[in-house]
Structures are given as structure tokens and as C-alpha cells.
Design a protein around this nucleic acid. Sequence first.
DNA 1: CATGAATGAGGGTTCATTCAT
DNA 2: AATGAATGAACCCTCATTCAT
Lengths: 193, 193, 193, 193
Amino acid sequence: MAIDKSVKTKKILDAAVIEIAHRGYYNTTVSQIARRAGVADGTIYLYYKNKESILVSVFERAMDRFISEGVLKLKNGKEPAEQIAEVVALHLKLVGEDHDLAVILQVELRHSIHFLDMFSRSRLREYFEVLADIVTKGQKSGAFRKELDPLLSAKLIFGVLDQVATDWILADSNSKLSSRVDEISEFLIAGLK
Amino acid sequence: MAIDKSVKTKKILDAAVIEIAHRGYYNTTVSQIARRAGVADGTIYLYYKNKESILVSVFERAMDRFISEGVLKLKNGKEPAEQIAEVVALHLKLVGEDHDLAVILQVELRHSIHFLDMFSRSRLREYFEVLADIVTKGQKSGAFRKELDPLLSAKLIFGVLDQVATDWILADSNSKLSSRVDEISEFLIAGLK
Amino acid sequence: MAIDKSVKTKKILDAAVIEIAHRGYYNTTVSQIARRAGVADGTIYLYYKNKESILVSVFERAMDRFISEGVLKLKNGKEPAEQIAEVVALHLKLVGEDHDLAVILQVELRHSIHFLDMFSRSRLREYFEVLADIVTKGQKSGAFRKELDPLLSAKLIFGVLDQVATDWILADSNSKLSSRVDEISEFLIAGLK
Amino acid sequence: MAIDKSVKTKKILDAAVIEIAHRGYYNTTVSQIARRAGVADGTIYLYYKNKESILVSVFERAMDRFISEGVLKLKNGKEPAEQIAEVVALHLKLVGEDHDLAVILQVELRHSIHFLDMFSRSRLREYFEVLADIVTKGQKSGAFRKELDPLLSAKLIFGVLDQVATDWILADSNSKLSSRVDEISEFLIAGLK
DNA sequence: CATGAATGAGGGTTCATTCAT
DNA sequence: AATGAATGAACCCTCATTCAT
């Protein structure tokens, strides 16, 4: 039962990611999600309160995958500069692996975060804090300049990664998102030093 | 007559910017725009073909103000590093001056650019090119590293500015966007050197 | 002044005939009529109370041209059978000469006569009476059977002519409407004998 | 389920016939049809693509009833002249039985056939062909004159029947449409001989 | 007389959500 | 639990008509 429930929930969420990534939230109908999920329209409402709550769950899961599956790997003892490079590689790898997920994060999340009641904004903050911690460590070890506010730095780093990811999505390019990792890392590390 | 026309057009556009910035395009009705503009619903359609074309015009005007009023000032002979600092200041000033305009640019434009037929994307490219030119000049003068691709650099710079602007918007803060100009400029210039 | 008035009235009516014949009354806008007439939208309302009254006038004039210009020629002393042939020729000639007028009469008039307040139905009755008179004369002279009700006969004759005209219109054919005159006359005269 | 579907479809169609016959297609709103059918506005669109497709279905069903239920009876071995009389009786009986259906056929169909994309025109042609066949047979058996083109004759016959039907409708008369059958048959048969 | 910008009621259509089965 | 037919509010847009100039 509990398993059934989560299986169906996942099926619906998977369907929603695809539809929303392709058409945008407002151009996606509940029926379309239901059809792709292979369930009836009404069934959606057994698992989600309404259309908006599907979107919230989509974001939640996307952020989860992004943060937990990825960033936690950073909790090791490497050099700050090296860790920056790792974050860059990881961020772009995750975004690059799943185009639909990337669209959701770069396009829909940013859009919704402003108009819908702010849920997952806190998850973003988690991410920022991880980045800020790296900067702080780097400043303590003398590797990075001390004048920069760590949280601001975190946001700047994120801005760069986000822009690269968005650019990749908007370009429709099936090009190599990973090929730029080194260049970008250097830029960021130089900026921090 | 011709004046009347452009006056009315502007009134409608101004109303649209406010409504769309507050509610998002899909949650804004033509009636709301009309009401705020002080005209009847039908009047809207004397000046715009349909709802979407209002959005397009909103973007167009926003980009125009942004690019023409601003970036052209850069065509002077200053040092590249100084120009970077100027761009940062200018970008954040323009965004900071008009919160609604900023929302449109950071939130709606990004959203629409992906799902609607890509019009004003070319305007963005213009902006990138201005930034890329500065980088190129800096590389020639030896001020900046030569390994970085100028266009990529332009995008990284934009990403940083964009993120800071978005952060400011999402924070709802009526805080000082300008206070961070120096920190950010330093970061970018260091990254380019 | 009076001349100006009737000139403008005619211009509007001419425009209305063309537009309505091409698109149908309900798909024709007052603006389209005005544009074709070369006047402003508002001007229409100086000459006609509303859109419907334009249609009424269109019908009125169409019937006028049809009856007066045509049928009155029949008031001569020919043989009834010969007169039938003349009516057939005349009816089809008038319809065939002006396709737009024909569409109005065959398609729009018939449609409107049922739903709008019945104006010009009386003009149609005039026409029927002319036809009925011919039949009556024929019966008196012994040329036609006496069992047939003259008014019914008139309508049967009209039905035949109307169908041929409609068929010609619906066929879009720029074919020869006149080529069938003899065949049709024979059929009608035989039917009456 | 399948039964439900066709039941509902029929209910909507019945409602549409009544409303359209009374007001005309363009003066009938989807809401009115829905109200008379006893369903919500949106329900209409579960069964019909749009308003126009309702009209098409109305025509289709009207023609069907007219042709299949009726004309096929003619495929027997009677005398041509007798068959003509049968067609006249049948045509007027069908029209006379259902005033709304008659209005649709005589008024709306003729109107739409000219302005909408011509669908059911082919059904009319079927009907003409049945009539033409009778004439052809009559010509072969020597009962009818050979000079007349059978298809033209068919149209003339139809024109007569159509006019009588239209006249009956426009007269609003709840009078006897059937009383004229003999007179009309005679006229037609005489015309063909 | 003439204009044409402005009006706003009204229509067709969509779609999130419900509920009887 | 699951279905999907039904609902009806809400939206975009059109166009006959008016009226200030």
C-alpha cells in the first residue's frame, strides 16, 4: 500500500516533470500529466491537493536530487580551490544529465519562486550555505581574499553556474556542457583569490 | 493623433508592466491591465494585437531602456577593468531603480524566452557582445588573461549580475542594491585577470 | 444635399451588397462595409439606423431592381406561354448578370426572411402575383389547365427558377445560366398545359 | 457508456435543432443549446469540437433522416410517373412532420452551404441522383420526353418541392402541406411528358 | 456632416476540480 | 482506490454602436 502510493506518486511526478519542462507550467494541463502518467484525471487528486502542489513537489524533488545526491559529497577534506572545481563540475554534470530537470530548475523554479508561495526557497539557501562554507574555509586557510562576504560569494558562484546552465538550455544545444568546466573553475577561483 | 496613440500605448504598457510584475503574465488578465490603464477592455485591442503581443512589447521596451539608455555609455576609451566596474554599476543601478522592470527582466523574460517564440533573445545577445568586446580589449591590452573565451566571459559576468539582481528581487528587499557594486566588480576583475 | 445624401446612401449600399454577398450578413462587419464604401464607421449610422437596416435596404433595392426593371416589361399582350418563356429568360438573365445580387437574393434573403422581421416579403408576393396573372390569363384563353391554382402555379414556377439560380450560385460556375432557358421554359409550359 | 455517449449526443443535437430553427445559427449561443439540452456549457465540448461542428451534425442527421429513411423506399419497380408522385408525397410529408427540421433544411442549410466549407452538399447530390434516375427510367420507357437532361429535371423537381416547403415554413402556417400533393405531382408529371 | 477612437456587453472555449459509479 | 464525465467560472477577444471633436 505504502509502496503503491509512492510508486504512483512517482509516476505522476515523472510525468509532470516532462510535461512542464516541455510546455511550461501554465501551458500544461492536469489531463496531460494524467495521460502521460497513465492514470485518470481524478486520480491525480488522490495524490496531490491541486495542480500547484504538483509543481511544488516537482521542485522539491528536483532540489533534493540536486542537493543530497550531489553536494553532500563535498563534505570531505579537500582544498577549497579544489572543492570549487568539484562543485562546478558537479553542478553542471547534474544539470547536463537531465535536460527536463534543468529546465524545471532554471526556468520554472525561478519563475514560480517569485509568484507562488515561497516553499523551496529554503532549499536554495542550503545550497548557498554549502558554497559559503567552502569560501569561509578558503578565507581561513588564506587561499581566498578575506574582503568578500562568503554568502555573497556563494551567490556569485551560483550565478555563474546558473547562467551557464540557462545558456545551455536556451541554446537547445545538445552540446557539451562539461567542456567548459575548467575555464569556469579558473575564473571563479581567480575571482576569489 | 500620433501623439495620442503613443501616449495611450505607453499608458497600457506601463499598466502591463505593473500588473505582470506583480502577478506574472499568466495570472494577469487583459481586464486588469485595462483597468489599471484606465481604458476599456476593447481599447487594448486597438493598440495590441493580443495579450501576448503586450508581453512582447513589454520585453522590447525593457531591453531597449536597458541597452540603449545604458550600455552605449560604455563606448568610451576607459580602461577595461574600469569599464567592467562601470557595467556592474550601471546594470545594478538600472535594475535597482525600477523594481517592476527588474521583475519583468529577471523573471518573466527568462521564463518566456524559453516557451514563447524567441523574439528579444537577440537583444540579449547584443548585450553579451558589448561585454565580450570589453573582455577582448582587456585581453589585447594585457589586462586580462587570454585563455578565457570572451563570449563565455561575457556570460559569466552577466550571470553574476543577473544573480545579484534576482536575489535582490526575490528578497523583496528594498535594500541597497548598489552597496555591493565594489565587491562584485573586484570579484569579476580578479576572475578575468 | 439631397443628391449628396442619396449618393452616399448608394455607395454604402453597393459596398454592403459586395461584402454581404461574399461573406454573409453575420460575417460582415460594419467596418468592412464602411471601408469599402470609403467612409468612416460612424458615417454609416448617419444613413442607416443600424446594421440590420442596411440589410433591409439591400433587400429592398434588390427586389426593386428585380421587379420594376424586369417584370413590368411583361405588361404586354403576348401569349401566356410566350410570356412564361420571357419570365424565365428575364429572371435568369437578371440573376446571371449580377452574381452578388443573386447571392443576396437566393441565400441571404431567404435566410433573413425567416428570422428578421418580415419586410420585403410583400415584394416577393408582388412577383408571385405577376406570375399568377399570366397563369390566370392562360387558363382563360384555354392555353393552360384550369385545375391548377394560379398562385400555387406561380410559386412552382418561382421554385424552379429559384432552384436553377441557386444551383448556379452554389456551383461557383461562371457557366452559362442562359443556356438552359429553353429547356426550362418547355418544362414549365408543359407542366401548365 | 457507449450508449450514454450517443444518448447525450442526441440530446444536444435535439436541443440544437430547436434553438437553431427558432433563432438561426448565428443568433443561437452555445449556452442556449446547453441549457435546453440540460447540460453545462462545457459538456457540449465533450461531444462536439466547436459550435460549427454542431451545425454540421445537425445537417448531417437531417439529411440522413431525409434520404435514408425516405428515398430508399423508391427502389421498387413502380411506374416512373407513380414514383414522381411518391417522391412528392414523401418529401412533403417528411418536411411537414417536423417543422424545426424543415427550417434547418430549407433555411439554414441553404445558407450555410454557401458560406461554410461545403460538407453535406454531397448528400444533396445523392438526392438529386435518385430523382434523376427516375427521370432516366421514364425516358427509357417512353413515359417522359427525351429532350430533358435528367439531372436538370431532378433539380427542377427539387426546386418545386423546396419552394413549396419553404413557402409553408415562411407562412408559419400549421396548414396542410399534404393537401397540395396531387396538384404538384400533376404539374411535374405533365412537365416531364 | 463626418470622423474614428473608445466602449463594454456578450460569445466561444478551456480546464482545474468534483463526485457518482 | 480509481475512474472520467460533468461542471461552470473565468478568460480572451470581437464588434455594433456612440459621441467628442
